[in-house]
Computed example of a mutant assay.
Amino acid sequence: MQLQKTIYLFILLPIIVECYTSFHRHYRSRIKRTATDECCVSSKLNVGAKKANNGRNFFRQLATETDSYKLINPDNMCNLIHFLIQQASLNNKSISFGKGMFVIFDSTNQIFNRFMKSKNEQKSGDGSKHVGYFKRLKHMGAQAMDGLFKKSKKSNNESDLIESDTFIYVRGDESSHYHQERGSKEDRARNYPAYGVDIPGACMPSGFGHILFGELPAIRNDSKYSGGRIYIKPEYFGIRQLKHFIKHTQSYLTHMSRKYVCQLKDMQTKPGCSKEDAFRENTDKKLLDKWRKVLVTIPNIWNVDEQYMNDAAKYGVGEIYRQAKQLEASGHQDKIKEFLDTIIKQYGEDDLSVRKGREIIFTTKALLDSPLTCERFGKIKKC
Rank of each mutant, 00 (worst) to 15 (best):
D106I: 08
S251F: 05
R190G: 03
D311F: 10
I301R: 04
I232S: 01
H139M: 05
D198F: 06
Y252C: 07
A144D: 13
Q61A: 15
S155C: 07
S159I: 13
I11W: 09
R56Y: 14
R33E: 15
N109V: 08
I320P: 06
I168S: 03
K345F: 10
R376W: 07
S43Q: 03
C40H: 01
P234D: 03
Y225T: 08
E174W: 12
L264A: 14
I343S: 08
L12Q: 09
F339C: 10
K335Q: 14
N76R: 09
G228Q: 11
G172Q: 11
C383G: 06
Y321L: 06
S155K: 01
E375Y: 04
C39S: 14
R358D: 07
R220V: 14
L148Q: 05
I301F: 09
I360G: 00
L3K: 09
N221E: 15
G55H: 13
V170D: 15
Y308R: 10
T21W: 14
K138F: 06
Y260P: 00
L3W: 08
H24K: 07
K259H: 10
Y192C: 06
N54F: 03
Y231T: 02
I239T: 12
M140D: 13
H332E: 15
R190C: 09
V131N: 09
T364S: 13
G141Q: 07
L340M: 13
L13P: 00
S43M: 00
F213S: 02
Q180G: 05
D146Y: 02
F245W: 10
Y20E: 01
L84F: 12
E328V: 03
K32E: 08
E349D: 14
C262V: 12
L352Y: 11
C273I: 01
A329W: 02
K129D: 15
F377N: 05
A35K: 15
L62I: 08
Q346K: 13
L71P: 02
E215L: 14
I162T: 10
S330Y: 10
Y20P: 00
Y347D: 07
P299E: 15
H179W: 00
V261H: 03
S274L: 12
I162Y: 08
F105P: 00
R182S: 01
T342W: 07
Q346R: 12
R136E: 04
N46I: 07
E163I: 13
F208L: 08
Y8P: 01
K285V: 10
S22H: 04
T297Y: 05
P193K: 12
K32Y: 03
C39V: 07
K314T: 13
S43Y: 00
F237C: 02
E158G: 06
P371Q: 08
I380F: 07
T283F: 01
F97I: 08
K99A: 10
T36Q: 11
E338N: 14
E215F: 03
S330C: 09
G207T: 02
V47L: 04
I336H: 05
Q326Y: 12
I81V: 15
S274G: 06
N57W: 06
E235D: 15
R322K: 13
Y315H: 09
I7Y: 14
Y347P: 01
H255A: 13
G141F: 10
Y308T: 05
